[in-house]
């Protein structure tokens, strides 16, 4: 059975978000389908090449990316989760007083240690320090 837990006001306030999603997806999908229906289809080998601002593309698009991207993604994910934890704190710390504010600052400070660590160890640098010392 579909859930009937939520109150009507709550869902009404979210219908704007739903409408936004439907409009966003519909705009892109509608455009693609509309042009797919009306455009003529005359395919040549040149039309099928990848468009790279007018340059002739060299090789395939599936190259192996630098593994350093992965560090950035992982660091981003950790601070993403930190932001999630800080959101409820940011909403209520004003009404709960100074101690609640300090508790949040402690939370941030612990993760600042992590940021300082990866920064100091050169994980955030695009060109690593040891790369420059011993190429």
């Amino acid at each position: 059975m579909p859930p009937t837990l939520s109150s009507a006001d709550f869902l009404t306030s979210w219908s704007a978000v739903l409408l936004y999603f439907v409009a966003a997806v519909g705009f892109v999908a509608g455009g693609l389908i509309f042009w797919w229906v009306i455009r003529p289809s005359r395919i040549t080998a040149e039309k099928l090449t990848t468009y790279e601002c007018g340059e002739e593309p060299i090789g395939g698009a599936w190259v192996q990316f630098n593994v350093r991207f992965y560090v950035f993604a992982l660091v981003f994910l950790v601070f993403d989760v930190e932001a999630v934890f800080l959101l409820p704190w940011a909403v209520v710390f004003r009404e709960l007083g100074a101690i609640a504010f300090l508790e949040g600052l402690f939370f941030i400070a612990v993760l600042a240690i992590g940021l300082a660590y990866v920064w100091r160890k050169g994980d955030l640098a695009w060109v690593r320090l040891d790369d420059r010392v011993s190429p």
Binding site: L74, V75, E82, F85, P88, W89, V92, G104, F106, V110
Partner: peptide, 25 residues
């Protein structure tokens, strides 16, 4: 709830995230 009853798990989560960050690096 984070700042009252569940303060310790809340602060422990930051330690957990720190461990995850350093481990991943």
């Amino acid at each position: 709830a984070f700042l009252g009853k569940y303060l310790l798990p809340f602060e422990a989560a930051s330690i957990l995230l720190l461990v995850a960050l350093i481990g991943a690096a």
